[in-house]
Design a binder for these strands. Sequence first.
DNA 1: CACATATTGTTCTATTTGGAACAATATGCC
DNA 2: GGCATATTGTTCCAAATAGAACAATATGTG
Lengths: 155, 155
Amino acid sequence: MSASTRDLNAIFASNEIRDTYRISFLANSLIVPVYDTIKRDEGLNRGEYLLLFCLAHFPKLTAQDVANMTGRPRNSISRGVHRMLDKGYVQRSPDAEDGRQAWLRITPAGRALHKRLVKRFQAREAELLSALSDQERRQLDELLQKLVLQSSKRV
Amino acid sequence: MSASTRDLNAIFASNEIRDTYRISFLANSLIVPVYDTIKRDEGLNRGEYLLLFCLAHFPKLTAQDVANMTGRPRNSISRGVHRMLDKGYVQRSPDAEDGRQAWLRITPAGRALHKRLVKRFQAREAELLSALSDQERRQLDELLQKLVLQSSKRV
DNA sequence: CACATATTGTTCTATTTGGAACAATATGCC
DNA sequence: GGCATATTGTTCCAAATAGAACAATATGTG
């Protein structure tokens, strides 16, 4: 009964950082439930899935690249790499020119897993976007692109 | 050198879940650096700040309300409540009608803290939004509102 | 009223997370 | 070449996190 007597959704429209609050809320709503199912079904945690996702979109990356892309600390990536190596979803080969770094690549098993798992995010995204018309989706696409480029500029 | 030879930003435009990826990226970019400064300067972790923020926008809430609003598990909220009680930013009073629950309210000290801290998020938000025109900001506002309402509908 | 079920908030525990220090390697500057 | 500084990836450790079980209270159904 407690929640029903107050409109908790009112905060979406009436707080000092409306865009921040709503973007953060949407991010959680889009990814948390899906990560939960991935954890449950495949035993991958967030860092491991992010690594898989990044490697699915580039021929090769260093651990530092993945840290830069995801904003996670290097030690988290390092742990994720080792677990994904063990699981056979990722392979690693040292760089001949720079002895410090190593190149990471996705394996066929990793790519197959990615193809299966990304469908879950797509389904959740489609559910959310069902609230928008085609034109609104195009608007959103343009706005998001401007914002992420602005955001990554300062890094 | 490794990153400069690859355009890591390309993933924004070319992945299977573009909106999910970019919204999640933006959320991190908006809140993580600010949370870091709040942790450093005030010793509040994410759950504690979220509690403060929620209570700043409602006269009273139960711990369960806060869990619903933030999507965090009840035990995290419970811990946050105790620490914020100790710090004097929150007060608690049992509900006379329902012996299980208690009402949480922000204290004057808590409100003063909130007013100071929210400015940091506002500054970060303004920095991001500087990439958009006034009209684009209005568009974003409308789109976000539709999306959060869609998102909270299913809960 | 009695008993099964649900809800609130808490504690216990295992996992996840990230800061800091570290070794190995690379770069820059004299 | 030699030495200070930077970068990569790792390990160590402390803090944060969330699932599960729990006690107390409330609700519903006979």
